[in-house]
Nucleic acid binder design. Structure first.
Length: 411
RNA sequence: GGAGGGAUGCCCGAGUGGCUAAAGGGGACGGGCUGUAAACCCGUUGGCUAUGCCUACGUUGGUUCGAAUCCAACUCCCUCCA
């Protein structure tokens, strides 16, 4: 192993590392178990998504290897809006919206982190606590004077906008100042010495490292993860339903399990390392499977990733449901369920179950031969559920295509 | 403040009076092949109580038998000048 510290060794062998401002310095610190690292989370949506899961796992390993994680809620920075990787100005969000999002996001962290007052316990802070109190002139004098506009203009987040002749407003231009200041504030308050994030955050992070030096903090470090893409190059985390959210009320454990089960072959090993806590020897064994056998590895990936986030019970239930539904072709009780009765029209049942957005969509699907009831294809869009369609438990299975299923339960 | 340019479906983008629910591409979904994979091929992609009706090309009004297309006002965006 190349590193002295457990922390960097684990991250390295699992494929989390993209760039670091100073490997040796950080390694020395981690070897003494003195890293206090933070990751900032935007409050632009009511749930974090799968991309954020990656940095959560980094915090997890940080803690596992004896260091202290800080999760920073971007209550203040979300008021400004990060221009990184955006072509257009983000819609400015209201304070109420940000508060609501923050409250809704918070819950996921205790799935992978241990919070508390101990030395290596995680803590959660909110940059609204200091950013909202800043006074403009003081900020300019104390912090603003350390920023070179010449240099800011060369940062990717700004430069790319300018090159494409896309508007960038002054508020967005200030984002990196806020994030840099966060780092300094966390260094002063909590002794924070490492900021981690996705590769798109590199510019923002190293600016913070720089600001720390100019403002006289201890040495700060930067560490980023590679951008998550599938091996066919697509950005990860997009599905028919939109993003792969981490909150169960927005993306169910069943959908989450299915998401991982459908991973491309070429990504399985990489994702096992990143999104599960399985030991490397076990992953090495799974990695050797090929051909149809790789499906076993995909199931393990789905089980472990789902168990991490939604609990072992939810993962087992999803696995059992998948087994019944896809392997045995039977009717599993844990599929998404709606209520309905004999006499209900097929079209409205599909819409109610969320399998289709409109009656017309179901009609077209019927024409395309992709609609079935209890695994029998339906050719008539006017089909009405009958007594015989419900089994002795009062359940009827409706499917759109091979993969999307739901149950109708009579009341 | 002045002068130009622009706003089309999930996204990009064609369309300058009827043949337009709107070309083409992307994405998404479905079918085929498979292994609930990728690649590839094919199909679908505004709504409805459906041989018809309704909604829709920034907003509101107007011209016309007929408007995404012409006119007016307004809103927002961009570029250049000050």
């Amino acid at each position: 192993m190349a590193y002295k510290s457990d922390f960097l060794n684990v991250l390295d062998e699992r494929g989390f590392i993209h760039q670091c401002s100073d490997f040796d310095g950080l390694d020395a610190l981690a070897a003494k178990r003195e890293v206090i690292a933070y990751v900032g989370y935007d409050c632009t949506a009511p749930s974090l998504h799968i991309g954020n899961f990656l940095s959560m796992m980094m915090l997890h390993w940080l803690q596992e290897t004896g260091n202290k994680p800080i999760t920073l809620m971007g209550g203040g920075t979300t008021m400004v809006g990060d221009p990184s990787g955006k072509d257009e100005t983000r819609a400015i969000r209201t304070a109420e919206e940000i508060e609501a999002n923050k409250a809704s996001i918070k819950g996921v962290f205790n799935k992978v982190l241990q919070f508390g007052d101990g030395k290596t316990d995680a803590i959660m802070v909110d940059n609204a606590d200091w950013l909202l109190k800043l006074s403009y002139i003081d900020m300019l004098r104390d912090v603003g004077r350390h920023f070179s506009v010449n240099r800011m203009l060369t940062m990717d987040s700004v430069r790319l906008r300018l090159e494409r002749e896309q508007e960038m407003s002054f508020i967005e231009f200030n984002y990196m100042v806020c994030q840099s200041y966060d780092y300094v504030e966390l260094a002063r308050r909590y002794g924070c010495n490492l900021q981690m994030g996705g590769s798109d955050q590199w510019g923002n992070i190293v600016n913070g490292v720089d600001l720390g030096r100019r403002m006289g903090t201890h040495q700060l470090y930067a560490l980023t993860t590679p951008l998550l893409t599938t091996s066919s190059g697509a950005k990860m985390g997009k599905t028919a339903q939109g993003a792969v959210w981490l909150n169960a009320d927005q993306f169910s454990a069943w959908d989450f399990w299915q998401y991982w089960r459908n991973t491309e072959d070429g990504d399985v090993a990489r994702f096992l390392k990143l999104f599960t806590t399985l030991p490397m020897e076990e992953i090495a064994r799974l990695e050797k499977l090929d051909g149809a056998e790789i499906n076993e590895a995909k199931k393990v990936l789905a089980n472990e990733a789902t168990a991490l986030l939604h609990g072992r019970d939810a993962a087992d239930a999803a696995a059992a449901t998948a087994q019944k539904t896809f392997v045995e072709g039977g009717l599993a009780q844990d599929l998404p369920t709606i209520s309905g009765n004999p006499g209900d029209g097929l079209l409205s049942l599909f819409v109610a179950a969320g399998l289709a957005a409109s009656n017309g969509e179901v009609r077209r699907a019927v024409t395309g031969n992709s609609v079935s009831v209890n695994d029998a294809k339906i050719a008539d869009p006017g089909y009405v559920a009958g007594e015989a369609d419900f089994n002795s438990d009062g359940l009827m299975k409706i499917s759109l295509g091979k993969k999307r299923h739901a149950l109708v339960k009579r009341d």
